[in-house]
């Protein structure tokens, strides 16, 4: 069977399966299990209403549990065990972790990740706020925003190719085809640089790719937040003689503080998961390793599930504070 046909069949089975499940289970509940008539009609209606939510929730909860909750526990278990050749596992305690922290590559990934965590959210949010503010009152603002937002639709891999061309380097005697080197030479640079192989700085050239993608996201959200600021506060500031910069930094920014924080944390999570860019552009060579790629290396190249899972747990640990913060915010809102 061709994959296309299999795909269509899956859609048909998936959709009709879902609809069938929901319809039939509801019918069963209402007509067979607790019919709302007869001597116990009232009791039956109540009982049916207690069970129904779970019928609606069941497939989604099963998917969530199996594909997200269970793996967290299983990864934790794997990180504390080691595969025994020939099958089975043996409990090794924290051995995987100590093996991991003894590796220089791990610390290189940690160090780079820290830079990523500072630079990317800061620059994306900063640029996003700048663009949101600048385009707020100009007539072609929406057009400009839509172009800056565009990289959001481009895959990390596509973006990697785009930026590899920007960073491309040719020998000095040839015409440069990478625009960065062309500009570098034009402004008096002596030798064309292979930007992605210069340790330390090359990580920043990779970060630029993610900043380029994420700025649009920050801009869209911050722009909506800026529009939501009550006019009166700004008018009052103008009457008091505030200049545009004071209005921006002292009136507007404080009012959208929470939104900035939300944008910042959302980008932080994206950064922790970033894998494709490093994988496609340098594959962790020249000291550009990051945690997600380190983990992929361990899991699928070295086939070391123990250390791989341990590094996955490190990512989870870094995400955990944001997770807790999000959950607390959500609960506060619902009260």
């Amino acid at each position: 069977m061709t994959p296309a046909l299999q795909g269509l069949l899956t859609i048909a089975i998936g959709v009709s399966g879902c609809v069938g499940y929901f319809y039939l289970s509801n019918q069963f509940l209402d007509t067979v299990l607790f019919p709302p008539r007869g001597p116990n009609a009232g009791r039956n209606i109540n009982r049916a209403n207690m069970i129904r939510p779970w019928l609606f929730l069941f497939p989604a909860l099963a998917a969530l549990g199996l594909y997200l909750a269970y793996p967290v526990v299983e990864t934790l278990r794997l990180s504390l065990t080691e595969r025994v050749p020939g099958g089975g596992y043996k409990w090794v305690g924290l051995d995987n972790y100590s093996q991991m922290v003894a590796e220089p590559k791990f610390w290189e990934a940690m160090r780079n990740n820290m830079f990523w965590l500072i630079v990317v959210p800061a620059m994306s949010t900063g640029f996003g706020l700048l663009v949101a503010q600048l385009t707020d009152r100009i007539r072609w603002g929406n057009f400009a925003k839509s172009l800056i937002f565009m990289p959001m639709a481009i895959s990390f891999v596509g973006a990697s190719v785009i930026w590899k061309l920007v960073y491309d380097a040719r020998p000095a005697e040839q015409d440069q085809i990478g625009i960065l080197n062309a500009l570098y030479i034009f402004f008096g640079g002596a030798e064309p640089q292979t930007w992605l192989t210069v340790p330390f700085w090359n990580s920043f050239f990779l970060m630029i790719v993610l900043v380029w993608i994420q700025t649009g996201f920050a801009m869209v959200i911050l722009s909506a937040a800026l529009r939501g600021i009550p006019e009166e506060t700004i008018e009052a500031a103008i009457l008091d003689g505030a200049n545009p910069f004071q209005i921006f930094f002292k009136i507007k920014v404080p009012q959208i503080k929470t939104t900035i924080l939300v944008v910042w944390t959302t980008i932080t999570i994206t950064v922790l998961k970033v894998f494709d860019i490093v994988f496609a552009m340098t594959n962790g060579q020249w000291e550009t390793q990051v945690l997600a790629n380190y983990m992929y290396d361990k899991l699928f190249r070295a086939n070391d599930w123990g250390v791989g899972s341990a590094s996955a747990m490190v990512i989870m640990l870094l995400v955990a504070p944001i997770l807790v913060w999000n959950v607390r915010n959500a609960r506060k809102e619902m009260e």
Binding site: Y67, E74, A312, V327
Partner: peptide, 30 residues
């Protein structure tokens, strides 16, 4: 719909929103 545990489930969904899918690779492949 009103049922016991609803708030808890919503909180759980918000929590799972940020769980890195990296954690799921090996357990699910297995």
């Amino acid at each position: 719909m009103d049922f016991p545990g609803r708030a808890l489930l919503i909180a759980a969904v918000v929590g799972l929103l940020v769980v890195p899918l990296q954690l799921a690779l090996i357990p699910l492949l297995k």
